[in-house]
């Protein structure tokens, strides 16, 4: 469900609830309320822009780079972000996230999403526990099976862990448009809370069957690779934004790419990754303002295809 609350109503609501003083300053000056979607299975509301950590937060123990990433994460939370996604596959990213969350003290805002990434289907619990220790979280808001690796065994255990209250939501992931047929079969038969898949202006295979199926089955959708690993910027940034972009609620290429994604009614959240504060600020711009309508979405796709 798309929130259509205005800034005035949002602030009035906060004031009435005595929460206005807790409003992050950057959000207060952002101009309107964040765009949110609810998770169909739990009703929990999430901001539509989250954060990925693939490549960007794998900095080991480098003090200089840790400071830099701390600033990126701080801006993410200040601008209203909540969903952070990582994986044991991403090198030191989970450990880095744990260190930075402890440093910033922002765990209360976090919607922590990670993955199980091992062929050994008996190792699910150990993998979840290792990740929880690295992140420093008691339990994950979302635990996913990474790239469907050993998904049958892992998903059974994750479902049992969710039933026991050890996890809040469970899901599976794919990327690069791979194994969509298998993902479709899993979505059709398993009680998933989330799926994560690649969806962006250039990779739109998911529109045909997976996104309609997600709506039908009440599965939240996280879009990874929203910039196609940076290739969308390489392709589009030499060109100006089209004159009609402002009508679609877009003021930068990052917003152009992200608002296209999150304006699809089946999408819950997109998870762009960045190493730079200014890019995070641009990304979080897509959390506010208007979203393009269906006609504008078609126009956006046509424009990018023409470049």
């Amino acid at each position: 469900m798309l929130s259509s609350m205005t800034r005035r109503r949002f602030l009035a609501g906060l004031a009435a609830a005595g929460l206005a003083s807790r409003l992050p300053p950057a959000l207060a000056s952002a101009g309107d309320s964040p765009i949110t979607r609810s998770i169909p299975s739990s009703g929990e509301v999430l901001p539509v822009i989250g954060m990925g950590t693939w490549r960007t937060f794998n900095v080991g123990t480098d003090p200089g780079l840790l400071d830099q990433r701390a600033r990126v994460l701080e801006v993410f939370f200040e601008r209203g972000g909540r969903v952070v996604d990582s994986s044991p596959m991403y090198g030191s990213s989970e450990a880095v996230m744990g260190r930075l969350l402890a440093r910033l003290g922002r765990r209360e805002a976090l919607f922590a999403a990670s993955k199980v990434w091992t062929r050994d289907e008996d190792e699910t619990r150990e993998s979840v526990q290792r990740s929880a220790d690295l992140w420093g979280v008691g339990r994950f808001d979302l635990m996913q099976v990474h790239n469907l690796l050993g998904w049958e065994g892992h998903l059974e255990t994750l479902k049992a862990m969710k039933a026991a209250g050890e996890l809040r939501h469970v899901g599976v992931t794919t990327s690069h448009g791979r194994r969509h047929d298998e993902l479709e079969r899993i979505m059709a038969r398993e009680p998933l809370d989330f799926v994560q898949l690649t969806y962006n202006l250039l990779d739109r295979d998911a529109e045909a069957r997976l996104l309609p199926l997600a709506r039908e089955r009440g599965i939240a959708v996280i879009a990874n690779r929203p910039f196609q690993g940076g290739r969308l910027f390489e392709r589009c940034q030499p060109h100006p934004l089209p004159g009609w972009a402002e009508d679609a609620g877009v003021s930068s290429w990052a917003e152009f790419f992200l608002k296209f994604i999150v304006s699809h009614p089946a999408l819950t959240c997109a998870i762009p990754a960045t190493t730079r504060v200014e890019h995070m600020q641009e990304n979080m711009g897509a959390l506010h303002g208007r979203l393009p309508d269906e006609a504008q979405r078609r126009r956006m796709a046509d424009y990018v295809a023409s470049l």
Partner: peptide
């Protein structure tokens, strides 16, 4: 859409070059 070589790497050039400095 398929994996490119750079999609398999989990770190950035900046992080790699920092290794030498460290």
């Amino acid at each position: 859409m398929d994996y490119a070589l750079r999609d398999l790497l989990m770190f950035t050039p900046e992080v790699y070059l920092r290794l030498f400095i460290r």
